[in-house]
Amino acid sequence: MKSAVEQLSTYKSVHLNPTNIKTHFIGVPLIIWSAFVMLNTIPITFLKLTEPTLVLNVAGLCAVGVLIYYFKLHVRLALGLTLFIIPVLFSSYYVAQIEAAWIIALSVFVIGWVFQLIGHKYEKAKPAFIDDLNQLLIGPFFLMAELYFMMGFEQDLNQEITPLAVAKRRELEKGAPTA
């Protein structure tokens, strides 16, 4: 398994433009939320308690699996992602109960991807997942890292990944065809 530094520097290498990062702060949460609405519509429930309401279904199982991966990468960032995913799980569960759940989810999903694609126009680089599908999981992890950096946390991590990301970007640009 690649380290958090490797994963984040690879992702950041195509996310250096501040406008692109801002669009991702909108697009990625929209995509995650809509994906969880869709996962919540899968009629497999492993555990359901009515008082208090607790449901472990495909969406919850997926969240637990991804969070385990994040905890293996970086505990402090994973704690932030856990705080993010809890309201996503609850709100997506309730939206999945309404008749128009799939229409809502697909609409939000498309809007999220529009933000992503607009951001990459500013970046002038293809999305990270084009070369490595695992980077789809790193998007939320990267945004949590960026949020921590903005708040003054994990500055050693930021100082470690940024030069690596810039170097990776230079290598990508060397290999890019010139127009």
Rank of each mutant, 00 (worst) to 15 (best):
N158Y: 14
I130D: 15
F142H: 06
N57E: 09
L77K: 03
V110Q: 01
F142A: 15
H120E: 00
A78L: 09
E99I: 10
N158W: 00
Q116N: 04
Q116T: 10
R76G: 03
E99P: 13
Q135I: 02
R76M: 10
L157H: 08
G65Y: 00
I161P: 06
V66S: 06
F141V: 04
N158A: 11
K126E: 08
V58S: 05
S107N: 13
P127V: 07
V88E: 14
L143E: 11
A145E: 08
N57F: 12
N158D: 13
K126S: 10
G152L: 11
L61Y: 12
M144Q: 11
S91Y: 00
V58I: 15
G139F: 07
C62V: 13
A63I: 04
K124N: 14
V88W: 02
Y94V: 14
F90K: 13
R76N: 13
L117S: 00
F90S: 13
G119I: 03
I104R: 03
A78C: 00
Q135S: 02
A125D: 07
A96I: 08
K72M: 09
F109H: 12
T82D: 05
I85V: 13
H74K: 11
A96H: 06
L136R: 02
P52W: 15
A96K: 05
I111N: 02
M150H: 12
L73K: 05
L133C: 06
G139W: 00
V58D: 09
G119C: 05
I104G: 06
H120S: 14
V95A: 11
E51R: 09
Y94I: 12
L89E: 06
V114P: 01
A78N: 04
V66P: 06
A63R: 07
L164V: 10
Y93V: 04
V75K: 00
A96F: 05
G139K: 01
H120Q: 11
A78R: 08
V55G: 00
V114E: 03
T82V: 05
A167E: 09
L157F: 05
L54I: 15
E123L: 07
I111F: 05
V64K: 07
H74M: 09
W102I: 15
V166L: 07
G139H: 06
A78F: 06
V108L: 11
D132R: 04
Q135C: 02
A165G: 12
L137N: 09
E160Y: 03
L54V: 15
V64C: 08
L81F: 02
P52M: 09
V108G: 11
L143S: 05
L117T: 04
L117P: 04
A128L: 05
G60D: 07
H120L: 02
Y69V: 13
P87Y: 01
Q135D: 02
A145Y: 07
V75H: 00
V110W: 12
T82I: 07
A165T: 14
L89R: 00
L56R: 02
Q155A: 13
F142R: 03
F71I: 09
K126N: 10
V58A: 10
A128I: 07
E154M: 01
V114A: 12
A100S: 15
M151I: 12
T162F: 14
E160A: 13
L157P: 01
Y70P: 04
I161V: 14
I118E: 13
P87F: 02
A59M: 05
E154K: 11
I118L: 08
T162Q: 01
I104P: 08
H74V: 05
A105C: 13
R76K: 12
G65R: 05
F115N: 04
L106Y: 10
